[in-house]
């Protein structure tokens, strides 16, 4: 066999499998946590402050006696929602602007390129501040800011890639075989742009988690009644010298999730490109 679906190829990569498993676990945790957590994540109890990990409090408790495991568990919902919606919005903005900047009439194409350059000059944080000063801080502001901020990045990279692929000999050869413009775009240009897009998207989703943490810290993100890894990290980091064990949990959750998105993006790119697949196929063919 030399032809596998990209899903089969993905399952042959340990890093891809581990990353996908972690993300599936997060989604499951997000769903479960909306109906059940071991303790109420916001329930304070001054008599059980700063407990070390035990069976009752798996990750211990913080300075006001909240169960850290329950809080981290409940905050997966925020993470999953932010990453998913920011990813969708970044894709829409990215694909829309990239298409407008590469497939249209010359003047539309070039004005879009200028627009992309202008938007890239605005830092995501500035977009978030602008939005929250009008609408007030919320997760919606974080999602919108990250979606636009990284969507523009995706647009710039994808636009360049669409134009590069559009000028290749294989696109010219496809047209010389009689393939129409829709077929050229759908069968030849977009599949060859997809790997770059997937990597950019995974980067955007990973960054959205960091951005949510950062923006929540600055007060532009989730309200205090929404559990968030970034907010917990911020609460605990004050005591890092006294209780270093507790800050590890939200830190590890953020790090592992960002890493998983990056690894999954790379594995997906490798799995969809026959040139990057295992060389085994070639030796089988020669034998």
């Amino acid at each position: 066999m030399t032809k596998h679906s990209w899903a089969q190829e993905l399952l042959r990569r340990p890093a891809g499998v581990a990353a996908a498993a972690w993300i599936v676990l997060l989604v499951v945790a997000a769903v479960v946590s909306s109906v059940w957590t071991p303790h109420d994540p916001f329930d304070t109890d001054p008599y059980s402050a700063w407990q070390t990990p035990s069976l009752n409090h798996l990750f211990g408790t913080d300075g006001i006696g909240r169960d850290i495991f329950s809080y981290v568990f409940a905050a997966t919902r925020t993470t999953v929602v932010v990453a998913a919606l920011a990813g969708v919005l970044a894709s829409l903005v990215g694909i829309g602007l990239a298409a407008l900047g590469s497939l249209t009439a010359r003047w539309v194409r070039e004005s879009t390129a200028v627009l992309i350059d202008i938007l890239i000059a605005f830092p995501t944080i500035l977009i978030a501040m602008l939005l929250s000063s009008i609408l007030g801080g919320s997760l919606g502001v974080v999602i919108t800011a990250v979606g636009i901020g990284y969507g523009v990045n995706i647009a710039r990279v994808s636009r360049g890639e669409i134009r590069r692929v559009g000028r290749t000999d294989y696109v010219l050869a496809a047209r010389a075989s009689g393939v129409g413009s829709a077929g050229v775009l759908g069968r030849h240009i977009l599949p060859n742009v997809a790997p770059v897009f997937v990597v950019q998207l995974s980067l955007a989703m990973a960054t959205s988690i960091l951005a949510e943490a950062g923006l929540s810290y600055l007060g532009y993100g989730a309200s205090a009644s929404t559990a968030s890894w970034g907010r917990l990290l911020n609460d605990l980091q004050v005591y890092i010298a006294i209780h270093p064990g507790s800050v590890v949990w939200p830190g590890a959750a953020i790090t592992l999730t960002v890493l998983a998105f990056n690894l999954l993006g790379d594995a997906l790119r490798d799995a969809t490109d026959p040139r990057l697949r295992a060389r085994r196929a070639t030796s089988e063919a020669i034998a």
Binding site: G178, R187, P191, N192
Partner: peptide
């Protein structure tokens, strides 16, 4: 598009560049 490939066939200079790497 109906003429290309059906009535007129074309062969290119660099065969690797002229083939879609993903198909």
């Amino acid at each position: 598009a109906r003429v290309r490939g059906r009535q007129i066939g074309m062969v290119f200079q660099d065969p690797l560049a002229a083939l879609n790497p993903l198909h």
